[in-house]
Computed example of a mutant assay.
Amino acid sequence: MSTEHTTAGPLVAELPQGDISYRAAGPRSSSHPPVVFVHGLLVDARLWEPVAERLASDGIRSYAPTLPLGSHQRPMNADADLSPQGIAALTRDFLEALDLSDVTVVGNDTGGAICQLMLSGDTSRIGGAVLTNCDAFGSFPPRGLAPLFHALRHPGLVACLAPALRSQAVRHGPLAFGPLSSGPLDGALTSDWVQPLAGKAIRHDLAKFARGVRPGLLLDAAGRFGQFTGPVRILWGDADPYFRVELGRRLSESFPHATFTTVPAGRTFLPLDRPAEVANEIAAATGRSLRAGPV
């Protein structure tokens, strides 16, 4: 495979809110609409690597920024708006900085909430969307994760909790990443995800976001989904303990042109656990059919 098709990064985009690292995959000269991945809380761009590689092998160019959601290495500017609405604006600024248009935005977990905020506002650079298991409507945050979000609002409390996450048993346990995956997680990857929490500035960035999370935001956004007429594909793992199938189905019914597909035994981290299914949905949203390959 040529280097043009391999995942590159991290690269850096200079935005008004601060520098954002990102990874790019697929041919620069691709004739297909670009894909931009939006990850969730306490993970980084590497959540999308298995999906990006599949798309790249079929000629689709993708971009995966690491957003300031707790696993980022670069603190944002002190005055940056990092509320959920602010992160949505930051992601729009990322599209503008790279001069991307007709973008298919792809969101997972909290990143799906960010995509919904984007789809309810200025969509001039967005052509379509793929949403996997994520927050929606009044489930922001999900009831089962409300204590986590409450803790994340307090940087001092996070500083006390962070050392425990050095243990893989804790990170992969029932109170951390464990319930989000239907398969074994890479210990080195999850260690990298929590390591930035040791930084005071990173914890403060994360607190800005957590303090802005409230159910009314996505309920309000849903009232404007009818204005987006591009294709929306909802892919939902049916064994997710936090984001139930009914939530995904209701989300699909809120857009004028949406499909809804379930993934048996799938959980939140579909991009890691089921990259083939996710890549196929993205390709369909861009009007493509991927070549058959290993699941």
Rank of each mutant, 00 (worst) to 15 (best):
F177G: 02
V232M: 05
P179R: 09
R244E: 15
R61V: 15
E277Q: 13
T3R: 14
G293H: 11
G212Q: 04
G266A: 02
P33I: 07
E53T: 12
E253K: 14
L131S: 00
I282V: 08
S21E: 10
Q17M: 01
L251N: 05
A292D: 07
P65L: 12
F243Q: 08
E277H: 15
P231Y: 06
E253S: 14
I114Y: 01
M76D: 10
A8E: 08
P33R: 11
F225Y: 04
G223H: 13
D81L: 11
E4A: 13
F243I: 00
Y22G: 05
G199D: 12
R288W: 13
L145T: 01
H154L: 13
L95W: 13
S254K: 13
H154C: 11
G287A: 13
V35P: 00
A89M: 10
L157V: 14
T268I: 10
I20E: 05
T3P: 01
T110Y: 11
L42P: 00
A258G: 05
P68R: 12
R291T: 08
G26N: 02
L41H: 08
T259L: 07
D102T: 08
L82Q: 10
G9C: 07
P271G: 05
P27V: 07
F243N: 02
I87S: 05
Q227F: 06
Q17A: 15
A164F: 15
D102H: 12
R171D: 07
Q227D: 12
D192L: 10
A45I: 02
V295A: 15
T132Y: 00
E14A: 07
H150W: 13
L145D: 13
V106R: 07
S182N: 04
G86K: 04
T268P: 07
A56T: 03
N77D: 11
A283E: 12
K200G: 07
A88H: 06
R211L: 06
G183E: 13
T132M: 06
L185V: 09
A284L: 15
A188I: 09
S254H: 07
P155I: 11
L145N: 10
V35R: 03
A283Q: 00
P241A: 10
Q168H: 13
V158Y: 10
S191N: 11
G237L: 06
L197M: 11
Q168S: 15
G287E: 04
E253V: 02
D79M: 11
F94M: 12
A159N: 11
G18Y: 05
L247A: 09
P34N: 12
S31H: 04
E246N: 09
E14D: 09
L165Y: 06
D205F: 03
E49I: 01
N280S: 11
P155N: 03
G18Q: 10
N77I: 08
G293V: 12
R23A: 06
F269G: 00
E96G: 14
H257I: 02
L95M: 06
F140I: 09
S120R: 01
P147C: 06
V194G: 04
I87V: 08
P179I: 02
Q168K: 04
H150V: 14
V43Q: 03
A24N: 01
T110C: 15
A78L: 14
A162W: 07
V245A: 08
L180Q: 03
R291Q: 09
H32I: 05
R54P: 13
R274G: 01
V130N: 04
H39W: 05
G86Y: 11
Y242F: 09
N133K: 14
R224Y: 10
Y63K: 01
G86S: 05
R224H: 13
A88I: 08
